[in-house]
Amino acid sequence: MTLKNVDARGRACPEPVLLTKRAIDQSPERVQVFVDNTTAMENVKRFAVNLGYKVEITKDGQDFVLKISR
């Protein structure tokens, strides 16, 4: 099983979601996404939840870490 990390910090809309999508295509079991603003966090979360994933969010300073898993 692969854990894919995605660094989407500083990326403008819709790149965080697009990067997450690519990572999920490669590693459908587990993906971890780093973003640095609420908009990106909400967008990635909504995308993953719509695909039926569980999303666990932790705050790390200015950044958010989204753990996306089945």
Binding site: M1, T2, N5, L19, R22
Partner: peptide, 8 residues
């Protein structure tokens, strides 16, 4: 985009 932290 590949990250250093990617682990198998």
């Amino acid at each position: 985009v590949k990250m250093k932290g990617d682990v198998s």
